[in-house]
Design a protein around this nucleic acid. Structure first.
Lengths: 338, 338
DNA sequence: ACGATTACTGTAAACGGTTACAGTCTCTCC
DNA sequence: GGAGAGACTGTAACCGTTTACAGTAATCGT
């Protein structure tokens, strides 16, 4: 079958220990011997069996990533950040996505433990307790955008509340009194926090939140499209729409165009996430910028740290700041391409 | 440390073989014994060590995926397809992305072999020979959108040529004589095939391809934006623009809007890929539809088949068909949301 | 009544690496 | 010249599973 370290050792006339030492640079080996072993191993196309190595070393060199349903540009960016950070730390990435209900998540956790050194879990809609119950406590884990902060795991989230509050505050500050929001899915922590930020901003501005202006949505373009059609049917439609994320905003703008409502003159629109495409839309979308790539990279870096410290470190809870990116769609100034 | 199968066996008063049989349902075990073992294993929070299992079984249960730089919605969709198919077949996914040059790819291949049962490689810009040289020939592999077809690996690609030809033919059929193309990156097989389709369609329509109308691009919005600015400076600008992909088309439309050129009345625009967002753009983007999700899923299914047949199967070469999706941006009919 | 099957269980040998430990040889320093 | 250190190498135990093989007891068919 496949070439093993023993065969390489025999062919090179040394012991397996020496071969191992050469290949891992883990001990002194005479120059000539080292060269010979390298040459022989190359000629024989020797490939170390990683399972054997993991078993012996008690580490897999692999970190797991659990994601909800992949959707749109957002996840490309997250994965990219995760992957780059993992590569820098010389870890592999085991990916599992499309986990939306509790049962899926549990199954995925079960399947992953035992084959990774640590885990990044992004589950904006699942209780931390479910995770804890399905993971050995010795396994390092970083939670991305989870509902509760917890003393068991490191957490990393986006300042959803602050970002939403700032954007809605911006709209209110420019004279809008009837500001609608297209909400995200329920239950979902990000969505809830953005809603809370929206309401708080209204109250800040002396506006009473109006349930009729909180339209349902689920982060998809389609949901933004449908929400806007409903909002336009109101007796007193809004003059501004804050969408729970950019995808939703895009769907919303599509519906407005179809209805002949021009943006931003007849309706201001703003989104959240600032996905790369936003600046290229017509009109360019105002949004709340989150460095999505950073989100992934930082989570992974934190996980690597946790693995190195064998999970004995102080738990860290980080919140990534957001910044307002004002472009054309909210109508408060001329067009840059920010 | 961690609980092993031996400790479970001892606690349950049986041998390790019996425990293994219960947990894998791989042999007859008395009902009562089975229940007891399950209970004890659960109570002890036993988690099988996957490395040991892989070593013993000589299979990892993991399939590798090698991708170029992740970008935009396209890769979310591919990964989603890959992941779903892998999950259905009960395989795990080891992901590695951002491999753009030969050196990166080689390193990634080296790192992956030995820890996966098979590999999906998407590298539209790397020679198949490089891959073959870095993989044991016994390792099943499926190539996605690679330049050459090859007798060594299964391949799967999109009908880039046919799709581009059809779209440009459509534009020409509606009277456009000066049709520009914003090209994809070089070298890149997808990009080259789309360019070839563009040129062929022009010739089909009796139009002589004009090098001045072939603007450089690299699949990003930014490159579409810049390309259009250059095209608009031509003495005789085009009346239609075929972008190498949707992201490029989005950048192009952004530049047109800025220049005050209205789409589609003053300039027709079409893209390629039909990413989900396209139908929601303003105006809705005409594009060449590829089922991106399918691309990933099929590749993974083919890989699973290859693994099951231990790579002794007949090599399969598939080409995914494309369909034209005509919306508003190319100006040949009224607006549906297709 | 007895051989053949069947159901269940245990022992121990793989799987292919890493590494503690011990051993040999050479060199340095008094 | 001998002790001690350092460089190099080999032996063999260990990591935690799976599974071939063998063994026992019960059941079945004739």
């Amino acid at each position: 079958m496949r070439v093993t370290i023993r065969e390489v050792a025999r062919a090179a006339g040394v012991s397996v220990a020496t071969v191992s030492r050469v290949l891992n640079e883990s001990g002194p080996v005479a120059g000539e011997t080292r060269d010979r072993i390298r040459r022989v191993a190359g000629e024989m196309r020797y490939i170390p069996n990683d399972a054997a190595r993991s078993l012996s070393m008690r580490r897999t060199g692999t970190l797991g990533v659990l994601l909800p349903d992949l959707y749109g540009e957002f996840f490309s960016e997250v994965i990219r950040g995760l992957d780059q950070a993992a590569q820098r730390a010389r870890f592999h990435l085991l990916l599992s996505s499309s986990h939306n209900n509790r049962h899926d998540i549990e199954a995925a956790l079960q399947a992953m433990r035992g084959r990774v050194d640590g885990l990044v879990v992004m589950s904006p809609h699942i209780d931390v307790a479910v995770l804890a119950a399905n993971l050995p406590e010795s396994l390092p884990a970083v939670m991305l955008n989870t509902p509760q902060s917890t003393s068991e795991f490191d957490t990393l989230s986006v300042d959803n509340f602050g970002g939403a509050r700032a954007m809605v505050g911006h709209l209110a500050g420019h004279g809008h009194q009837r500001i609608a929001m297209v909400r995200g899915p329920q239950p979902n922590h990000d969505a809830e926090e953005r809603l809370r930020g929206y309401r708080t901003a209204l109250v800040d501005a002396g506006i009473t939140p109006d349930a009729a202006l909180e339209a349902e949505g689920d982060f998809t373009e389609e949901s933004g499209y449908r929400a806007v059609r409903r909002l336009l049917e109101l007796r007193r439609p809004p003059t501004a729409i804050f969408a729970a994320n950019d995808s939703t905003a895009i769907g919303a703008m599509s519906a407005l165009r179809e209805a002949g409502v021009s943006v931003p003159s007849a309706m201001a629109v703003a989104g959240f996430d600032d996905i790369p495409i936003s600046r290229y839309l017509t009109p360019a979308l105002s949004s709340v910028r989150v460095s999505i790539n950073d989100l992934g990279a930082r989570a992974m870096e934190q996980l690597v740290r946790a693995v190195e410290e064998q999970n004995r470190h102080e738990r860290v809870h980080q919140t990534l700041p957001t910044t307002l990116v004002i472009r054309d769609s909210c109508g408060v100034h001329g067009g840059d391409r920010g």
